[in-house]
Design a protein around this nucleic acid. Structure first.
Length: 258
DNA sequence: ATGCCGTACCAAGTACGA
């Protein structure tokens, strides 16, 4: 089974690229983030390729989905005790069981800057993710949280750590939240890079970040023991970051052996 | 060439991203 996660930065704007990628990479299950459309506005062309779709979006920002051609059951929208931001609970998490594998597609809040109310929201949101993982990964089945975590797990996961001294994504509390997920039994499934030495998944649109490989590894796959044991390969498909109108994120692809 | 920011809102300029 091939499972992927991809922050597409608008499913509507990215639709031609997404359809072409689905046809070439042939994933069985795909976790999407940053739909930037409502649940009802999710493009029907994706189902036309043979995928069942569970989408969760409210419009302009955020939005997550799971696509599957391996079954799509027990869909759950939102986390247990999920916090709101400015009195709105945002569509940032959706879970489903696909061919016996429980997957969550998550879009962790950005945080904006340390000390900002959005940063506090990010940390509270990660606590709710931990609560949900603790409740759901106890079952004896492969389980994984995939998505845009907006956290670089280690200094090597950004191109130049010296530029991040005042930034989110690399702070100790954010990394402690990842540590807590590992403490709940999940492992960081680190993909291989198809070029250069680091498996970055995001490159800013500006300042030639992609050609210069000024990237970050912030799109993560956290799987339980059963999931990790089944991983045969994992890679970042940087080819999807090239060319006309790409997302600023590349897909992370994980191949599970039967 | 992988190439100098893109998207949704909605019709001009702003919020947001990481």
């Amino acid at each position: 089974m091939r499972i992927a996660t991809w922050n597409v930065n608008s499913i509507v704007a990215r639709l031609p690229r997404v359809l072409a990628w689905l046809e070439s990479a042939k994933p069985d299950v795909v976790c999407l983030q940053e739909l930037k459309c409502t649940t009802d506005a999710f493009p029907p062309e994706v189902a036309g390729l043979g995928y069942e779709v569970a989408a969760y979006g409210l419009g302009r920002w955020n939005g997550v989905a799971i696509l599957s051609r391996a079954g799509l059951e027990d869909v759950r929208r939102g986390l247990i005790d999920e916090p709101a931001y400015e009195n709105e609970t945002e569509p940032r998490a959706i879970g489903a069981t696909c061919g016996g594998v429980r997957v969550w597609s998550v879009y962790v809040p950005n945080g904006r800057e340390p000390g900002h109310s959005h940063y506090e929201y990010k940390l509270r949101w990660l606590e709710a993710l931990h609560t949900t993982v603790t409740a759901e990964s106890t079952a004896d089945r492969p389980f994984a949280v995939l998505g845009d975590f907006n956290i670089a797990p280690a200094d090597d996961d950004v191109w130049d750590i010296s530029l991040f001294t005042e930034s989110t994504h690399v702070t100790e509390p954010e990394r402690k939240a990842l540590e807590a997920l590992r403490g709940a039994g999940l492992r960081d499934i680190v993909p291989r890079a198809l070029k250069y030495d680091r498996p970055y998944t995001y490159w800013d649109y500006r300042q030639l970040a992609f050609p210069n490989n000024h990237g970050m590894r912030i799109d993560l796959v956290y799987g339980n023991g059963d999931f990790a044991a089944a991983v045969g390969d994992a890679y970042v498909d940087r080819e999807a970051r090239k060319g006309k109108s790409p997302s600023d994120h590349a897909p992370v692809v994980v191949d599970l052996t039967p």
